[in-house]
C-alpha cells in the first residue's frame, strides 16, 4: 500500500487518544489525561482564548474507517479507469487513472489532518466541539439548552467500535456532532449531558 508511511506518524496520537478514553471512563469529569493531542501547528490556535488542556480527541478508528471508505471507492475506480481506457483507447490514456490514485494519496493525508482537527471539551456549563482544517468551526452548546442527545452507530461504525453523538437544541442551525467515540464514551457522555442538561435546563 502506498499510504503506509503516512500512517506511521498517526499511530502516536492514536495510542494517546486511546489512553485518554480509558482514563476518562474512570473519572466521569474527564479532565485528567486529556491534553492537546496535535502538536502540529494550525488547529491548535483555535483553542486560544477558550480553554487549554481540556480538549479530547476522537478515536483513531474513525480515521481507519474513513481511509477504508476512501480506498474502497478510489482504488477500484483507478483500476477501472486504467483498464477501460488502456484497453479501448490505448496504453497512454491509462495515465488518466493517476487522477483517482493521486486523490486517494492526497485524501490519505487530508483525512489524517481532518481527524486530528476533531476535538471536544466538556466544561463546567457547556460542551465545545471543534473541527475542520481549512474551514474551521467551533460550536459551544450550553448544557441547559440541549433538547435531545442522540447516539447513532451504523454497521461500518459498529465494526470499528465507533459511535456518533449528536446534540440538538431548539435552534435547528446548531450543528454539534461528535463522530468517532467509543460506544462506552458516547454513552457516558450522553448520560452526563442529559444529567447536566436536566440540572441546568431552561425554557426557550
Amino acid at each position: 500500500m502506498t499510504g503506509t508511511p503516512a500512517a506511521a506518524p498517526d499511530s502516536g496520537p492514536n495510542d494517546e487518544a486511546a489512553d485518554h478514553d480509558e482514563a476518562g471512563h474512570d473519572e466521569a469529569a474527564g479532565h485528567t489525561a486529556a491534553t492537546e493531542t496535535d502538536g502540529t501547528g494550525g488547529a491548535g490556535t483555535e483553542a486560544e482564548g477558550i480553554t487549554a488542556g481540556e480538549w479530547r480527541a476522537v478515536e483513531h478508528g474513525l480515521l481507519l474507517l474513513r481511509r477504508l471508505v476512501l480506498l474502497c471507492t478510489l482504488l477500484p475506480l483507478t483500476v477501472a479507469v486504467a483498464l477501460a481506457l488502456g484497453l479501448t483507447a490505448g496504453p497512454a490514456w491509462a495515465l488518466f487513472a493517476l487522477i483517482p490514485l493521486a486523490s486517494a494519496l492526497w485524501g490519505w493525508g487530508a483525512l489524517a489532518r481532518n481527524w486530528r482537527s476533531w476535538r471536544y471539551a466538556e466544561r463546567a456549563d457547556d460542551l465545545l466541539v471543534a473541527r475542520g482544517v481549512l474551514w474551521r468551526e467551533m460550536t459551544v452548546v450550553p448544557y441547559g439548552r440541549m433538547q435531545l442527545v442522540e447516539v447513532t452507530s451504523g454497521p461500518l461504525e459498529r465494526k470499528y467500535g465507533l459511535a456518533r453523538l449528536q446534540l440538538h437544541t431548539a435552534a435547528a442551525t446548531t450543528d454539534a456532532t461528535i463522530p468517532g467515540l467509543t460506544p462506552g464514551e458516547a454513552e457516558r457522555l450522553r448520560d452526563r449531558l442529559t444529567e447536566l442538561g436536566e440540572a441546568r435546563s431552561a425554557g426557550l
Binding site: 474551521r136 459551544v140 437544541t169 446548531t174
Partner: peptide
Amino acid sequence: VQSVRLSQGP
C-alpha cells in the same frame, strides 16, 4: 442564545 459558533475559512 441556544448555541454559539465560530467559523473561519482559509
